[in-house]
Measured scan of single mutants.
Amino acid sequence: MSIQHFRVALIPFFAAFCLPVFAHPETLVKVKDAEDQLGARVGYIELDLNSGKILESFRPEERFPMMSTFKVLLCGAVLSRVDAGQEQLGRRIHYSQNDLVEYSPVTEKHLTDGMTVRELCSAAITMSDNTAANLLLTTIGGPKELTAFLHNMGDHVTRLDRWEPELNEAIPNDERDTTMPAAMATTLRKLLTGELLTLASRQQLIDWMEADKVAGPLLRSALPAGWFIADKSGAGERGSRGIIAALGPDGKPSRIVVIYTTGSQATMDERNRQIAEIGASLIKHW
């Protein structure tokens, strides 16, 4: 067993022997301040990774656009098919120029040779490549099948209805392509620590998230040296922004954090800054 596999296998073990965790309302004060600064709703939840206990939450059962955070769930569904012998990570998928959609920095470079399922998941999570996500959605049967996968996990809230990039439209009061912070946090925890996926697939999923290259201005910008984070960000229309993450000190994750916002007129930089400040408060009061 590799060191990384050992780390993920012992996530519940280490967490069980940690000192009790206590909620700190100071972080919620910052979440509410972010709402004021952005002029928009902000949803927040913080779960203990081992027990699933909610440590703090704000608007945990209000719907927010998922945006690209759905790509972690998508690759979880792909990995479940791999575990069941219905898919192979090494299978190569070929596609054409007509398949390319807006923001496809990886797939646009491989029109000639195609990409493997493993490479597509890596591109979808680490670079948020939209064509990679659409190609992977095709392998599982489309958005409705991802929703069905989530329902089978016990998540009857999260739903995907459309493809990239239309799913980022974020129309107010439109339930399409949305989740709730509580539902997303619980589902992410199941994917990373539950028995739904094999140990190898859980490790692969967290490795992809740990290698995320496009979430630097968010929670990662607030992390002290030595902290662990595996995350996936999302951005959408109407001032929408979000991030889902597993993080913790001492090089291992111990909490799940989900943050979503929508309806702001603020710039992307300002949305990023507010999420980073929430992260800084979380870490300060850990």
Rank of each mutant, 00 (worst) to 15 (best):
P25C: 06
K32Q: 06
D33V: 02
E35A: 08
Q37T: 12
A40N: 00
R41C: 14
Y44W: 13
Y44D: 11
I45W: 01
L47T: 04
D48R: 00
N50G: 09
S57H: 12
P60E: 07
E61W: 05
E61M: 10
R63Q: 05
R63Y: 04
M66Q: 08
M66I: 11
K71L: 05
L73F: 03
L73I: 10
L79F: 10
V82M: 06
A84S: 11
Q86N: 14
Q86P: 08
Q86I: 10
R92S: 11
R92Q: 12
R92P: 09
S96Q: 03
L100V: 09
V101E: 08
V101H: 02
E102W: 10
T107W: 01
T107S: 02
E108V: 11
E108P: 09
T112Y: 01
M115K: 01
T116H: 13
T116R: 11
R118M: 12
R118V: 14
E119S: 14
E119C: 14
A123N: 00
A124H: 07
A124T: 08
S128K: 01
D129G: 08
N130H: 08
T131V: 10
A133C: 08
L135N: 11
T138N: 13
T138Q: 05
T139Y: 11
T139F: 01
T139G: 07
G141D: 02
K144W: 12
K144V: 13
A148W: 15
N152R: 09
G154T: 03
H156M: 07
T158H: 09
L160T: 09
E164T: 11
P165T: 09
N168L: 09
N168A: 12
A170D: 00
P181E: 11
M184L: 08
R189V: 08
K190H: 15
L191G: 06
T193G: 06
E195C: 00
E195D: 03
L196M: 05
L197N: 13
A200M: 05
S201P: 11
R202H: 14
R202A: 08
Q204F: 09
I206F: 15
W208H: 10
W208E: 05
M209A: 11
M209N: 14
G216M: 00
A225G: 02
D231Q: 08
G236R: 06
E237C: 14
S240P: 04
G242E: 12
I244V: 14
I244D: 15
I244K: 04
G248Y: 07
G248N: 01
G248V: 03
P249W: 10
K252H: 07
K252D: 15
R255I: 00
T262W: 11
G263S: 06
M268T: 11
M268C: 15
M268S: 13
D269P: 11
E270L: 15
N272L: 07
R273F: 14
E277V: 14
I278V: 14
I283E: 15
I283C: 15
H285Y: 02
